[in-house]
Design a protein around this nucleic acid. Structure first.
Lengths: 198, 198
DNA sequence: TCACAGGGTGACCGATTGGTCACCTTCCGA
DNA sequence: TCGGAAGGTGACCAATCGGTCACCCTGTGA
């Protein structure tokens, strides 16, 4: 059985690495955040780098579950109003779940310093979300909601503006409401441009 | 007259801060990169933080020139083929100019650690480029190349997919060619979707 | 009862870092 | 001619960081 402390260390490590970067984070602060002494960390991990690697392992496993087996794909909406609601629900979750926010920050700030983070960043920011919407659009085309075209290209075009607004949310949280309004108006624009009008 | 050394220090600081972050960059390496001793730096700047601030000052001034007075806007193209060429030329420049690449990396990796970087990042990644294309689309609407609609929204939708591919270029330079191919095919898709067909 | 493993502590170590200081060289104007 | 400012050097300092070590406490199975 896994020691719960071992997992708690990773939780706190995510917070610190996301806030201060790998180099900036220090083990004393990490230990203090858990109510431990620094040397106690070494009972669970052999070095700072080992903690870092374990954290990345956990993240990789998470993405493998999330994007690999697409068992928890959102169900294909029957209308554009349904699509809007599905999209906004996913966006809201991704913007407000603290762990996902921290993960995004870590991927952004460390993408040039670590090869694994680099790969994960591309998976998260590009392939992952676009892949989900690609499946979704494919289903909507089958239902006749959407003109038949390359679903991957459409998902790419749909996804990146939203990602840009999510990044803005992360960077300037005080503008979150403005961001959501822009997302709503972007959604109406996108729907207006793509709703099938035969 | 400004000491040239003072500027050279900022040039090298951009390289190091972009590569290793503010905390990760160290003054000995900076000095060595310039063929100086570390203490010589203190004849020009009073601290590491002062170098950092001077670098941000220079970046802010650059953006003020770049995006403030829009005197060097690209001229409005007369055809969609002209638009494609203008866009690809700007993209190529932005991806290949080493200083701009470094600036992007610095903005990305330090956006959560410094309030000024945060503001500059939004200006660079969102408002700046979108603003340019907004003007450009406005001109193309006047020429009848493009259906009249909100040019800002159109620029936002056009710009963010390209930014995403540029980020991919920065992150995984070995995939640069693939990125350019995707940009080309994105451009044809965009043009096909928006070229006025009355 | 006792040996011992798991988990925790605090003192300590060496390396690195930003910063200071005394000193040195060159050049230029009074 | 000379005094001082500009620019550069290397030795040094204090703080911080990752990591180690001897030691401690507690529960558990033989």
């Amino acid at each position: 059985m896994e020691t719960p402390t071992k997992e708690r260390i990773l939780d706190e490590a995510l917070v610190l690495f996301a806030r201060q970067g790998y180099r900036g984070a220090n083990l004393r602060e990490l230990a203090a955040g858990l109510g431990l002494s620094k040397s106690a960390l070494y009972k669970h991990y052999e070095s700072k780098e080992a903690i870092w690697n374990a954290l990345l392992d956990r993240m990789e496993a998470y993405y493998a579950r999330q994007f690999g087996a697409m068992d928890h794909l959102p169900e294909i909406p029957d209308s554009w109003e349904g699509f809007r609601q599905t999209a906004m629900r996913m966006i809201r979750f991704t913007v407000q779940d603290p762990r996902i926010v921290l993960t995004r920050k870590l991927l952004l700030t460390e993408q040039f310093h670590d090869a694994r983070v680099c790969r994960l960043a591309t998976k998260h920011f590009l392939e992952g979300t676009a892949g989900i919407y690609s499946k979704l659009f494919e289903g909507m085309m089958a239902k006749g909601l959407l003109r038949r075209e390359d679903p991957a290209m459409l998902a790419f075009c749909f996804t990146t503006p939203i990602s840009a607004l999510i990044h803005l949310c992360d960077r300037e949280p005080e503008r979150q409401q403005e961001c959501f309004e822009r997302m709503e108006s972007y959604l109406t624009y996108f729907i207006g441009a793509h709703a099938a009008t035969p």
